[in-house]
């Protein structure tokens, strides 16, 4: 019985984990609210991207804390469940990388082909409807001849 998971930790560990999670969550919010122009010496990277990376990095730390402590992966003798959990992220990483290999590289051969055709987006429609409330009638779309 002694090797059952979830036994070894103290109740204090739980509280510390909780505090750490709150701090990290707070950190994510703070980073996202931080004004961009105040960071000097970082003009070599798009700051929006950098922020995103930092925020998702913090999220990853939080996830490893939750899985390690609250879900008890850290205390297991057999690492099987950890392998299962990491397997998830491996497969998801492959999913995003390969799908991005498509979406991120479309129009490589004929860049000009990537322009969208004319379609009426619900956003435009809504904007037009709001405009039309005052202007009476909805004007027809100008004809857009195909190529």
């Amino acid at each position: 019985m002694e090797n059952l998971p979830g036994h070894t930790y103290d109740i204090k560990v739980l509280v510390r984990v909780y505090v750490a999670l709150l701090v990290l969550a707070g950190g994510m919010v703070v980073v996202s609210l931080a004004p961009l122009e105040n960071i000097a010496g970082l003009d070599w990277i798009d700051l929006h991207v950098l922020k995103g990376l930092v925020i998702f990095g913090l999220a990853t730390i939080m996830v490893s804390i939750v899985s390690g402590f609250l879900m008890g992966l850290r205390y297991e003798k057999s690492k099987l469940n950890t392998v299962v959990f990491l397997g998830n992220f491996a497969f998801l990483a492959l999913f995003i990388v390969f799908t991005w290999a498509d979406i991120g590289f479309r129009g490589l051969v004929y860049p000009s082909f990537e322009e969208q055709l004319n379609w009426e987006s619900p956003v435009d429609k809504a904007n037009k409807a709001h405009a039309g409330e005052s202007e009476e009638a909805e004007e027809a779309d100008p004809e857009t001849p195909a190529h």
Binding site: F91, L94, F98, A101, D102, I103, G104, F105, R106, G107, L108, V109
Partner: peptide, 21 residues
């Protein structure tokens, strides 16, 4: 798990993805 894109060689996915898959 790594080869699903071979169902999409003519689908209009990027040439890079086609080659990798």
């Amino acid at each position: 798990f790594l080869v699903w894109g071979h169902h999409m060689f003519v689908s209009g996915q990027s040439e890079v993805a086609d080659t990798i898959f």
